[in-house]
Simulated scan of single mutants.
Amino acid sequence: MKNLISGIDISKDTLDYCSLSTEKVEVITRGVLDNEKKAIEKWLKSHDQKNTVFALEHTGHYGATLINCLHKNGYVFYLINPLELKKSLGIDRGKSDAKDAYRIAEYAITNKHKLEPYQLPKENLGRLKALITARERYVKMSVQVQNSLKANEILNQSIDVKVLIKEEKKQYKSIQKSIRNIENEMQKIIEADQELKSSYKKMTAVIGVGPVIAIKCIAETDNFLKFDDPRKFSCHCGLAPFPYQSGTSIKGRTKTHFLRDKSLKAVLTKRAISAIQHDPQLKTYYNRKIKEGKHHMSVINAVANKLVLRIFAVVKRDEPFVKLAA
């Protein structure tokens, strides 16, 4: 363990930092700097790589500059899940950026046995993540415009809103074009990287796994380096059921947890429905479970979990997918 832990609270314009000694958990230094490359580079020069480790929350784009600077200069740093940090605080009063920086550093010292240094993914994976996120945003916009267009077409029967209909049709075409451009760019990245191309080709051979879910899985798992166990990935997606019981009085039903990657679960659920229609083995499994009295969505969830197991099997074992008879 390093001698100094520097906790950093990230905001859009500034970075609040608090450095603690790992032995006595005492404040050594604290302060604020601008969230820009020059200021961060200058601040990092005052730290010894051998004796300092940094801890920061995952804040998306706001922390990208700091993470790149830490990685480029060879510093060890931890990227902490904000929810995990919040849940660990217990009863707490008050909140400020300076206080949050102290809490991050203290959490890193207390939980040093659980934390692993963050490894920045390859540039192509970073680009894929940004593009797949943008695609999801454009798809939501497309649905909103479509719904508004349908509503205005009904309204047009009693009130003249042809101008609105015309504008929304333009918007819809523009959004669809943007989605196609993003998908083409993602395919170019996949084709240019041999490792990504290999994983993509294996996954899309699995019945029910299309281009979007394949790219989504590659981006979320850092091309299957972040997750070794498919069951852990199922838990991340919200497909793994958990019991809810205690003693003799509390006996809730086993169900999936609300803490999950909702976009991944939504895509996997849709692909599971498609897989049931096209894969004889999964169709037989679905029909059998429904006859046994299982709920429709419970079986769909189980099929989505089977898709995850198949994806990991073909990628990790380096074996092609083989379609089996029912």
Rank of each mutant, 00 (worst) to 15 (best):
N181G: 07
D92P: 05
K201F: 10
V308M: 00
K12V: 10
K99T: 06
K294M: 07
Q157F: 08
V209D: 01
K323F: 14
N184H: 13
V315T: 06
N184W: 09
G7D: 01
H257A: 13
L225H: 14
L44N: 04
L268Q: 02
E167M: 12
F242I: 13
E123K: 12
D318H: 10
K2L: 10
K177C: 10
N301R: 05
C69T: 05
K162R: 15
L4T: 12
R253Y: 14
N287K: 15
I311G: 00
K162C: 09
V163M: 15
A275V: 01
L66D: 01
I311V: 03
D100V: 02
Y172W: 14
D193N: 03
E167W: 08
K262F: 09
Y138A: 08
L85K: 05
Y78V: 01
N73P: 04
I273E: 12
L128K: 04
S11L: 09
I273L: 15
T221V: 07
K201V: 14
T59Q: 10
K232R: 08
Y285I: 08
Y78C: 01
S246Y: 13
Y78H: 06
H58V: 04
L83C: 05
E26T: 12
A105H: 03
H278V: 09
C18K: 02
L239T: 03
I104G: 00
L70F: 03
Q146L: 10
D9W: 00
G210S: 02
I273V: 14
K294I: 05
G90E: 11
T248L: 13
N124R: 13
Q277V: 11
Q157E: 15
V145S: 00
V161G: 03
L149T: 06
C18T: 07
E153R: 06
E220L: 13
A313N: 11
K12P: 08
I311Y: 02
C69F: 02
N73A: 08
I207W: 05
I215T: 07
E292N: 15
A192C: 02
T204A: 02
T133S: 09
V315W: 01
I67A: 05
T254V: 13
L131C: 04
Y244V: 10
T248S: 15
Y102F: 14
E123I: 09
E123W: 07
K262E: 11
N184Q: 14
I8L: 05
I189G: 04
Y75D: 03
L309E: 10
I109D: 04
T221E: 04
L120F: 04
K122M: 06
E123H: 07
Q281V: 10
T248I: 11
E36G: 06
C217F: 12
L70D: 00
I213A: 03
K169N: 09
P211Y: 01
C18I: 06
T256Y: 05
E185C: 07
K291N: 12
K173I: 07
Q157I: 09
E195Y: 06
K289P: 00
L324F: 11
V53G: 01
S21Y: 04
L264C: 09
L79M: 07
S6K: 13
L324M: 14
I276F: 12
I154N: 12
D222K: 07
K72G: 06
K38G: 04
G7C: 05
M141C: 11
K255Y: 08
K114S: 11
K95D: 08
I104A: 00
Y200F: 14
S263R: 09
G293M: 11
K122E: 10
A192S: 11
S178E: 03
W43F: 10
P243R: 13
S174C: 05
M203S: 00
L15Q: 00
